[in-house]
Design a protein around this nucleic acid. Structure first.
Lengths: 217, 217
DNA sequence: TCAATTTTTTAGACTCATCTAAATATTATT
DNA sequence: AATAATATTTAGATGAGTCTAAAAAATTGA
C-alpha cells in the first residue's frame, strides 16, 4: 500500500507526462504539487526505491509500469467518485474536486469495483474526462482544449468550456458545432490565434475561442 | 480539522466512556487503540491542548463537549458509510468495517448530509447500532449484549448475535423472543451465569446465552 | 503501614513528509 | 569557452505520531 502523498505524486507525474515527454522535471512537479523542489527530490527518490518511477539524477522522472498502473487506479477512483457525487448526491460539477481528492485514496478493491457497477460503468466523469476501467484502459480518448493542439493536428469538437450565450452564438455563426472535425493549419506566434479548417473552410480564431473549445483526438 | 489519528482516539474514548464512567484510563485506551500507553499519554496531551478532552495526570480522560461532538460526527459518518456499503454496494455486514474506518475521516459536511439524505436518513447501521443525526442526536437507543447488563437492569430483546439453529431453538424452548422484556435479577460471579425474569418467570442462563442476545434499554 | 505490584508518565529515539539554506550540476549567453 | 543564470540535489532541521526503556505515582495487600 502507498501513502496519500505517494499516490498524489504518481498522479501528478501521470498528468505531467503528457506535456513533458522526455521526463518530468523536478521543478514542474514541484509547481504541480505546490511544494518545494527539494521535497520533490526526496519523494522521487523514495518512489524510485519502490520501483514506481524511473529516475536518474538531473534527468527528470518517468513512471514505471507499476507506477503508471497505480496512478491510473487513483485517477479511476477520483473520477468514479466525482461521477457519484454529481449523479447521486446532488453535487455540482464544480464542487466535487476537493472531496474526490480525499475519496480517491480509500483502499478497497471491492469498493471501487462495486461503485463502478452501481454507477453503471460510466465512461466519463462530470468534467468530460475519461474514466479508466478496472484493467486501466481508457475506452474513450481524453478531452483537450483546441488551444492545446499543435500545427497540423486534427480533432473532433466534443464540448465547450464557456457556456455563455455570446460564445454559443459565435460558434453558430461560424458553423462550429459538436461532432465537427477541426484541423489546425497554422498558429500565429504573436497572439496565439489559429488558422483552422472546418468543413473545408478556413477560419481564423483567437486564443479566447480556441481556449474554450473541447476536442477529442 | 483533526487528523485521522486524533479522530480515532476521540472515537475510542467515546466508546470506552460507557464502561469507564469516572474517566477512561490510559491503559484501557492503549488496549482499544492497539498501541502503547506512552503513545496514548502523548496523544491525550495533544487532545487536551486542543480542548477536545478533559485530562488530569494519572486521572484518566473524558471527552469535552467539543470532543464528544467530534466523536459523534465520526461515528455518524462511519455508520452511514456502512449502511451505504451494504444497501447500495452489495457488501456483507461483516465486510464493511475496514472500509468504513477509512471513509469516516473524509471531510465534507455536504457529503455527509447528502449521503444521509440519499440513504433515506437511516436510523441504524447494518449491525443494529444507532446512527446519530446531523445534530448528533441518537434517536434510537444503543444495542447491548444481555451479558453487559448489570444486576437489576432491564432491557428489551432486539436481536441475536449467534444465528445458529441450535441457539434459536433454545430461545424458542425458553420463550425468549424479540420484543420481550428481560430483567437481570442476579449474576453469579463464578461462571457469570444470570438469573433473569422474562414474562414473570425466572430463568437461569449461561454466559454463552447472555453473550449472544442483543438488548436495547 | 510500607513494600510489592501495577499504572502512568517522562525521556529520548525513530520514520515520514516536509522545509530552508547552501552546494552542485546543467543550460544559456556572451 | 567562460561566465551567468537556472535547475536540481544535499545537508540539516522540524513536527506529527509512534516506539522502548526508565522513572514516578498510585494502588494493593501482607
Amino acid at each position: 500500500m502507498f501513502s496519500f502523498s505517494e499516490e498524489n505524486y504518481l498522479k501528478a507525474i501521470f498528468h505531467l507526462e503528457r506535456r513533458y515527454k522526455g521526463g518530468v522535471s523536478t521543478n514542474a512537479l514541484a509547481e504541480e504539487m505546490e511544494t518545494k523542489a527539494s521535497s520533490v527530490t526526496d519523494m522521487i527518490r523514495k518512489l524510485s526505491d519502490k520501483q514506481l518511477v524511473i529516475y536518474k539524477k538531473y534527468q527528470g522522472v518517468k513512471l514505471s509500469e507499476k507506477g503508471r498502473a497505480t496512478a491510473i487506479e487513483v485517477i479511476r477512483k477520483h473520477r468514479l467518485w466525482e461521477f457519484f457525487l454529481v449523479e447521486k448526491l446532488n453535487f455540482n460539477w464544480d464542487e466535487v474536486h476537493d472531496v474526490a481528492e480525499q475519496l480517491e485514496h480509500i483502499k478497497s478493491e471491492k469498493l471501487t469495483r462495486e461503485l463502478d457497477k452501481f454507477l453503471g460503468f460510466p465512461k466519463r466523469d462530470p468534467h468530460g474526462d475519461p474514466i479508466p476501467d478496472a484493467e486501466g484502459n481508457f475506452s474513450v480518448s481524453n478531452k483537450l482544449l483546441l488551444a492545446e493542439l499543435e500545427k497540423d493536428q486534427t480533432g473532433i469538437c466534443i464540448g465547450v468550456k464557456d457556456t455563455s450565450a455570446d460564445f454559443l452564438r459565435y460558434l453558430d455563426k461560424n458553423k462550429i458545432a459538436l461532432g465537427k472535425t477541426i484541423t489546425v493549419k497554422d498558429i500565429e506566434n504573436f497572439d496565439n490565434s489559429m488558422l483552422i479548417v472546418i468543413d473545408g473552410e478556413e477560419l481564423r480564431i483567437s486564443q479566447l475561442i480556441s481556449g474554450n473549445l473541447f476536442i477529442k483526438m
